[in-house]
Design a protein around this nucleic acid. Sequence first.
DNA 1: CCAATAAAGTTTACGGTTCAACAACTTTGG
DNA 2: CCAAAGTTGTTGAACCGTAAACTTTATTGG
Lengths: 149, 149
Amino acid sequence: MLEPRWLSAEQQRIWRAYLNGVARINERLEVGLRPFGLDLGEYEILVHLSESEGHALRMSDLAESVRQSRSRLTHTISRMEVKNLVQRTACPSDRRGVIARLTDHGYRLLVQAAPAHVESVRCAFVDRVDPDDFEALGRAMEAVTRVTD
Amino acid sequence: MLEPRWLSAEQQRIWRAYLNGVARINERLEVGLRPFGLDLGEYEILVHLSESEGHALRMSDLAESVRQSRSRLTHTISRMEVKNLVQRTACPSDRRGVIARLTDHGYRLLVQAAPAHVESVRCAFVDRVDPDDFEALGRAMEAVTRVTD
DNA sequence: CCAATAAAGTTTACGGTTCAACAACTTTGG
DNA sequence: CCAAAGTTGTTGAACCGTAAACTTTATTGG
C-alpha cells in the first residue's frame, strides 16, 4: 500500500471552498427557477433541445448532453410530457430510437425563464468573481473534463 | 422589465465547462467511495465529526457544516446509526439538543476510506489543474461563498 | 413571571433518482 | 447469413431528499 498523498493545507482550503461554493451556486439557481416550476435538470433539457435542429434530440444524445442517466432522462421527460413541455416521437432512422421535441409551450417557457436564470448565474457566480479568476476557473474545469481516463 | 444581461460567448463557455467539470468530479468521487459503502454526504459527516472535540457535534451544527438541511441530516444520521457509524446522545446543556458521536467503527471506516478519497480528489481534480488556476479557482469560490445577500 | 415567539429535531408524505432487469432493435464477425 | 454481442429506451422497486407540520424546550420582552 502506497503512502497516501495528502492535500496541503492550502489545497484543502481550496477544496473546501469549492465544495461550499458549488453548493451555494446550485442552491441559488434552484431558487431562481422555482417560480417557473422548473429545476436545473429540466431547464438544461429545455436549453439543449432549443439549441438543436428542429428543437429535437434523440433521448440518448440528450441524456449525454445534460449528463443524466438514460433512466433518469426517461422519467424526467415523462414528467415534462405531462406538463406539455416536450413531446416524444419515434426515430425514423433507428427503430429503437425515441426523439424528444420541444413543444411550443416548452419553448415559450424557456424564453420566459431564461432571462431570470441568466441573472441568477450572474448574481450567484459570474458577477461575484474577478474576471481573471473566472477565466482561470474555466481552464481548470476544462482540464477536469478533458478525457484522460 | 430590464433588458436581460446575457453572458458573453466566453462567459457561457466557462459556465458550461463549470457545469461539466463539477458533474465529472462528483461522479468520480462517488465511485471512489462506493467500495466503502459511503456516499459523499456520509463521508463529509464522518470528516466533520472526526475533526470535532470528542468526535461529536450537535445535530444543527453538523447540519450547517455539511450543508444539509436538518431534516436531511436526521434521515442520514438515522441510516448511519443503523450501520453503527454514529451514535446519538442527549445534549446535556440544552434539552432540545441531540449530539451525534462517531463510533469506533465509524472512525475506523473513515481512517480506512480517507486515503482512497484523497486520491480521488487529486486524480479527479487537483492533479489535473495548473496550480495557479487552482488557486484562482479557490479565490473565485471564496468570493461566491462570501456573504453579500 | 408569563405569554408569545423562536429554535432544535423528528416525522410523514411525496416526488425524484438509482439500480437492475428487460424488450426491442442493430451491429458485428465468423 | 445468422448467432452473439451491443445499444436504446423503458419499467418498477428501493432508496434518498424535500417540504411542511409538529413536539419539545429556550428565549424574549412586556
